[in-house]
Amino acid sequence: MSNFSVAQADLDGKDVPARSASRSSLLRAIWKNRILYLLLSPTIIGMIVFQYYPALTAFWGSFHSWDGRRARFVGLFNYEFFLEDPRLLQSWVNIFLLLIFNLASLAMPLLIAYLIYRLPNAAHRYWYRVLVVLPIIAPGFVFIVLWRWLFSLDGGINIILRALGVDSQVVWLGNADTALGSIMFMGFPWIEAFTVLIFLAGFIAIPSEMLDAAAVDGATGWQRFFRIELPQVQGQLKVLVILTFIGTVQDFGRALFMTRGGPGYATMVPGLRMYNAFTQENAYGYASAIGVILFIVILVLTLINQRLIRSTEQ
């Protein structure tokens, strides 16, 4: 979750003046900044040891038939096997639909943040924020237990529907037509505290002169929202979009705990294939290959996003 535009500047080398310096002056610059490297070293070394080294091991494993003990080089077999999966298309379609949905559902925290921001009373604004954050006290897995029950035949959702006069006999997670939609619906009304607060921060930072000017011009509420306020939280929106990309493509928790990817293959996603390869098949090489592909997909999506953002800025 990041400020990617700053990162981009770094990657382009805009703020690194030493780029054309000769080798000796480079060494001198390094020596001069030795204390900085020292300060960074625990973090960087930690990342290399506990993250990059294991990740590279997995990358190496993706070219092997590897069960965690013995590894035999098999070239691109694991990748080919994954890409020839007859269920590949369905699992990517599922992840694509989830992605679209998760992006669209950012509208809910945006709405909540906006409503809070527009409240005239500061105390009200504060207390709504407290209420939005409150659900983080509950352990995460409780929501899985809860929503599984809500979706069951005689569970909460059907109880509510029946109370409303609809004789619902739908087994929400047990029906190929409703399972994916149910997984999306899970967590309704999707107002994650973190997201709401980020949006709210963006609204609060809008300079009041801007709004006053709009008021003088006689802008209506809608015009004001779409022309002034929404563009001002674009920065926040973009971060959340990238985070949603990363989170959705990697995620398999919901599919695993709610439906195991079923019924049949209705809610299967690539991440769950990877998880199953690890846990059920002991196929670490194959699982690693899927992981590498997911990494590449996220990387490409992020880079495209970066390009789009830069071109809109120019």
């Binding site: 599984r148 069951s152 035949l153 005689d154 006999q169 087994v171 047990g174 029906n175 019924p263």
Partner: peptide, 10 residues
């Protein structure tokens, strides 16, 4: 049971 593909396990 008609909900055998996803019963209420609680």
């Amino acid at each position: 049971n008609t909900d055998w593909q996803a019963p209420d396990t609680s």
